[in-house]
Simulated scan of single mutants.
Amino acid sequence: MAGDKTVCVTGGSGFIGAWLVRLLLDRGYSVHATVQNLHDENETKHLEDLEEHKSNRLRLFQIDLLDYDSILKAITGVSGVFHLASPCTVDKILDPEKEVLGPAIKGTNNVLVAAKELGVKRVVITSSISAIVPSRHWPADVVKNEDCWTDVEYCKQKELWYPASKTLAEKAAWEFAKEKGLEVVVVNPGTVMGPVLPPTLNASMLMLLRLFQGCTETYEDFFMGSVHVKDVALAHILVYENPAATGRHLCVEAISHYGDFAAKVAELYPEHQFPSIPRDTQPGLLRSKDGAKKLMDLGMQFISMEQIIKDSVESLKSKGFLS
């Protein structure tokens, strides 16, 4: 998209957000990045350290997803919005409405209302494979793709609040786009790993760290393939800049099982003792090398699982999480 190169990235301090800010600055964009607390160095320092900051193309805004006015300020003066901010955890949730459902759904709606009000051209929403799986009713002989949606009733029964929140937020976004005529496009990343820019670890990198610590969890309802964080950031820019990109975009290096991932980690680090994890950890999930065909058709070339693991482990070591 030519013309105004100022965009807003909500959740700019997060794992994917910080990479997206970095790549946007590299491409000459000016960026309004949002954080939850401007006085918290854990949220701001790694963004301010992006060397491009010297050219004053990065501005930080403090927002609360449930406070419309704070969102309005951050989006004023931009031509595109990348909406990444959403609560993410694989740990137990005590108050689903307050902890994840409310902020995810109302937050997304507030961002879209503000974008529409301010005449934003295109909004890219970061959804998740958690809005695609768990999907128990999908035909067993068909590879899962962008037409597949998470079964929210199943999530409620099993108290899987994160997939429920991502699914309901994405569905609300499509509803809004259709009703109000706003240009929305969605990226659905798998388990995102790679070099960590923020000082804290995201849920996916914790998954890898816990594997090294002997965790035998198989993430039955939370895994569909790994993807490098840099590729996820690139995918966002790709669908933003390409007018032909529409709908949802599954973003994984390959559709695979957590067992495949764990086996590759064990193969790469034979000096470590890893728990034995079955190969088929995602019941009914058919493997596929080109699960992200829509993104590949736009020119995306994905970093391999092996390289994702190596970059992730190196990052965990350099940050002192692994010795």
Rank of each mutant, 00 (worst) to 15 (best):
T34N: 05
T89V: 02
N188C: 15
S318H: 06
P195F: 07
P283C: 08
S304F: 12
I309W: 07
H53W: 08
H228A: 11
K319S: 05
T76W: 10
A18C: 05
D91C: 00
R27D: 13
A164G: 00
P103V: 07
R59C: 07
E271S: 14
K92I: 11
E183S: 14
I105A: 05
L322H: 04
E253S: 15
N37Y: 02
D40H: 13
T89Y: 00
G11N: 04
A115P: 01
A33H: 11
S312Q: 02
V232T: 14
L72Q: 09
T218D: 01
N56Y: 00
K230H: 12
D151L: 04
E52M: 05
D311R: 10
P103G: 10
P283T: 08
W174E: 14
F274G: 06
D141C: 05
G284S: 08
G3E: 14
K54W: 01
L201F: 03
K92A: 12
L298T: 13
P275H: 11
V124S: 08
V142I: 14
G214M: 10
T126D: 12
V133Q: 03
I277D: 09
K264W: 00
L201I: 12
R248A: 12
H137A: 11
A244I: 09
D311C: 08
T281L: 06
Y219H: 14
V196M: 03
G190N: 04
L60C: 07
E48Y: 11
V252H: 10
K106S: 05
Q36N: 14
F274T: 04
W19M: 02
K264I: 07
T108H: 05
T108E: 05
D67P: 00
A245V: 09
H137G: 06
G28T: 08
G194Q: 10
K289D: 15
Y29C: 01
E159R: 15
T44R: 11
R22T: 13
F61L: 05
V120A: 09
S226I: 11
H32V: 06
L316Y: 09
Q157R: 15
E51Y: 07
W138C: 04
T34D: 03
D40Y: 04
L234V: 02
W138E: 06
L94V: 13
A173W: 07
I277A: 08
T218A: 03
T167F: 06
K178W: 02
I129L: 12
K45G: 00
I125R: 02
Y68D: 02
E271C: 01
P275L: 08
L286P: 07
F302K: 11
V196W: 00
E159F: 10
E241F: 01
G291L: 08
D4I: 12
V7N: 03
E52K: 11
F302S: 07
D147P: 00
E51H: 12
I71V: 15
P103E: 06
C155A: 13
A164N: 10
Y269Q: 04
L65T: 03
V113N: 10
L238H: 08
K180I: 02
E170M: 12
E41M: 06
S86F: 01
V227M: 08
I237H: 06
A2T: 14
W138A: 12
A33S: 12
E159N: 15
S288F: 02
G3T: 11
S70T: 15
D280W: 03
I71M: 03
K5D: 03
